[in-house]
Design a protein around this nucleic acid. Structure first.
Lengths: 234, 234
DNA sequence: CAGCCCTCGATCGTATACAATATTCATCAA
DNA sequence: TTGATGAATATTGTATACGATCGAGGGCTG
C-alpha cells in the first residue's frame, strides 16, 4: 500500500504545467482523456484507482471529478461514483441547434472588431487544422476547431454567450471526431472555414454569418445521420 | 437532483435537511443564501467559518463550493478562497439577450405539447406568484418565475437548451428581485404571464412566442435601466 | 525616507484515517 | 428453479492532521 509511484505516477501531475493545484491538474488530465476518447462514455471512474495511478490521495481526485461534472463530462451519483457521460442523438441535435442559433448572431457582433492579429492567428489555426486533417491526426482536431470558432466570436462582447458556446463546442468535440473520420466532409469544412475568414476580412459580416450557420447546420445534420446509421450504443 | 431521502440517524446539525450527502445539503443552503441576497456579491466565503457554523469539517464545504462554482454563483481562486459573484451590466444584458434568443423558439416547440395538467399547474404558479407580489414577499418570486418559465418550455424536447435556460433564469433571479421591488412593472409581468398562458392554450403558439419575447425584452431593458441609474457597485 | 526582503500568521490544499452507504454473493425458503 | 434475505466486501463520504501558499507587517539596506 506504499506510495509506489510507477513510471506514470512519478510524472508528477502538479509539476506538469502552470497548474497551481493538483486537483486542477488531474481535472485537466481527465478532461483530455475523455475528450480524446481514451475514456469512453459509460466508463466508471473509480476514485481509488485514479488516486493510485496519479500517486495522490482521493481528495484532489474527488474535486477534479466535481469540476468535470460542472463541464458535463461526467455524471456523479451519490455513493455510486462518477461515470463518463455520452450524448444521445437528441442531445446532439440540441447542441447543434443551439450553435446554429447563437454562433451567427455572435459573429455579426464580433466580425467587425477582428484585428489583423486575430486574422493571422485564425489563419494559422486553419492551416494547422487542415494539415492535421491531411495527416489524419484527428486527436487534436476538436481542440483546433474549438479555438477557431471561439476565435471568430472573441470580440462579440457577450461573455456569457461565449462561455455557453465554448461548452457546446466541447460537447461537439467527441462526436465530431467520429464524423470526420467517417465522412468525407473534411475538405468542405476546411473550405468553409477559409471562406468565412475571407468574408469577415472583406467586411461581409452578414454573408459570413450565413455561411457559418450553414457550416454548423451541415455538420450537425451529417453527424446525426452517422449516429443514426451506426446504431450507437446506449 | 431529485433526492427524496430523509436524513435518518445522522445527528449532525447540518444533516437535517433531507439530502443524501452533507456537501449537497451545504451547497443547497449556500445557494439559497446567495440567491436570497443574504450573501451579497463580493462576500468572501471562508471555509473555516462555514465549517464551524454548520458543525462539520471543511471537506464537504469545499465540495459544496465547487458545486456552486459550477452554477456560477461563486468564483474560486486557488489558495485565495471563494467569493460570491455578481453580474456586471454587460453580463446582465447578455443573459437577457440569450433568453430572448432561446425562450420563444423553445416555446414554439413546447406549447403544442402542454397538457391540461401542465396548464393548471402553470396557472397555479401564476396565482401563487401574483399573490406573493401583492403581499410583497419578494423572496420567493424568483423561484416562482423560474418554475413558470421552465414549465412553459418543458416539452420542447431540448434537454441541453432547457438546462441553459434554467441557468440563465437563475442568474436573472437576484437582479430581477431588485427590478421588481423598485419598478412598477409588477402588474405588467403578471398580465403578460396570463396572456401567454391563454395564447398557448388557444393554440396561438407564434403569438405566444412573440409575447414571451417582448416580455423578456422588457424585463431586460427595465433591469438594465435600473442598474445604470443606481450606479451599481463594481 | 523609500524600497526590498524576510518572517509570521491566516487560510487554503492534500494526505491519512474512519464512518456510511451501495453492491455482491452465498444462503435459504417456496 | 426462482426469488428474497442478510452478511461480507467494495466504494464512496467525511473527519482530523499536516503541509503549502498567500498576504501583511517589521526590519534592513540604499
Amino acid at each position: 500500500m506504499a506510495v509506489t509511484a510507477r513510471a506514470r505516477g512519478s510524472r508528477s501531475v502538479a509539476g506538469g504545467l502552470g497548474h497551481r493545484t493538483v486537483s486542477a491538474a488531474v481535472a485537466e488530465a481527465l478532461r483530455q482523456r475523455i475528450l480524446s476518447g481514451a475514456l469512453a462514455p459509460g466508463f466508471q471512474l473509480r476514485q481509488d484507482a485514479l488516486a493510485e495511478e496519479f500517486g495522490i490521495s482521493r481528495i484532489p481526485i474527488r474535486e477534479a471529478l466535481l469540476q468535470l461534472e460542472a463541464s458535463g463530462l461526467v455524471k456523479i451519483a451519490p455513493h455510486r461514483g462518477a461515470v463518463v457521460t455520452g450524448l444521445s442523438v437528441e442531445e446532439i441535435e440540441d447542441v447543434f441547434q443551439l450553435r446554429v442559433s447563437l454562433e451567427p448572431q455572435l459573429l455579426i457582433l464580433s466580425a467587425r472588431h477582428l484585428t489583423p492579429d486575430d486574422f493571422s492567428e485564425l489563419r494559422a489555426l486553419r492551416d494547422e487544422y487542415s494539415a492535421a486533417l491531411k495527416v489524419g491526426t484527428v486527436e487534436i482536431w476538436g481542440e483546433l476547431n474549438r479555438r477557431f470558432h471561439l476565435g471568430l466570436l472573441r470580440h462579440a462582447g457577450r461573455p456569457r454567450s461565449l462561455a455557453i458556446v465554448a461548452g457546446l463546442l466541447q460537447d461537439c468535440d467527441r462526436p465530431t471526431r467520429l464524423q470526420l473520420s467517417v465522412s468525407g466532409d473534411v475538405a468542405r469544412a476546411d473550405m468553409e472555414h477559409t471562406t468565412i475568414l475571407d468574408l469577415c476580412e472583406a467586411g461581409e459580416v452578414v454573408a459570413a454569418a450565413n455561411l457559418l450557420r450553414i457550416h454548423v447546420e451541415h455538420a450537425g445534420h451529417s453527424l446525426v445521420e452517422i449516429y443514426r446509421k451506426s446504431a450507437v450504443v446506449e
